[in-house]
Design a protein around this nucleic acid. Sequence first.
DNA 1: GCAATTGCATGATTT
DNA 2: AAAATCATGCAATTG
Length: 346
Amino acid sequence: MGGDGRPGDGGGGGAGHPHQFQYQALLAAVHTQNPNHNHNHNHNHNLPFPLPPLNGPGPDASTHNAARQPPTPRGFADWSASTSAFTSLAVQSTPSTATANAYHYSLSPCYAFWTHYMLNKNAYSYYPAPNQEHTHPFSLDNNQAKDPGSIPNFGIESFNTTSLAPSMSAHMPPMEGPLSTKEPEASEDMPARVVAIKDERDARNGIELKCETVDALPELKQGHESCATKFNSGEYQVILRKELTKSDVANVGRIVLPKKDAEASLPPLCERDPVILQMDDMVLPVTWKFKYRFWPNNKSRMYILDSTSEFVKTHGLQAGDALIIYKNPVPGKYIVRGEKAIQQTN
DNA sequence: GCAATTGCATGATTT
DNA sequence: AAAATCATGCAATTG
């Protein structure tokens, strides 16, 4: 049955996925649009932010599972092609001492930067610009600060990231720059505590999440890996990370989610009724609509994220890559990102 | 009848 | 060793 969370609307021609190409074209576009853009370093000035024609990011990225973002501010959604520049930057490995199966959790600088930028740019009342006293190769120095479209900086606080998951922090390269005002890394056996936006409780059908105050999370269940990225009064918290398996990417567009994380951070699934989760793509101007549900399994449950094939294809995710879900300051939504595994250079 | 989806069972791993 | 979790294959269902 197609009930699939196809895009904004009944995905008529589900079979062909011409859209992935559009997305990719979108991504690629930036490169050509911003020839100056140096892929490797020195982004501290003259960042490729030719600024988004808010009225129309061009490509018809609005179909399918994903709905194009409206020109209005919505969490991470409000951006345009220029932003995809970050994608290109993302392809870089980290110096991590990666162990064999190490998590390649790396908010690569580009992402960090992107986030940094976008938050500043789009957050409106949510997130004023990040603290600029951080110096970092990617620090936004003056650029976005001058972005006419950005909101004024109200007393910026620090933008920090707190890594919690033992497993994650263990491999997560210390985030640099703006993102690295990180707390003393939680050591492997020391799961840290995280402050999180508490809203799961109120999350009824995944649509009415209420973004309340920042509050101490009771206790992210043991082992729950999480990473809170803090921006002033708001936080971006990694609520779930899944290293994709063959079946996650090759199958029928469904990804098995780690039970613990799913139960801890996604809307509760009371019945068998699936819940549609809207997730803003972290690098594309689209909002994915995934069907979140579970299968009874033995005496337990298996949590599934459905209708993910477009997302996977669009990001070219393969086994070994990862799916990362963040909490979105926008009530009822999440932010999703596909993370390519770091290629190991022997 | 076929292809795409969905639901479930089972074996492998991990805890 | 037992229990829990998860990856995956496959049957059932749907369009």
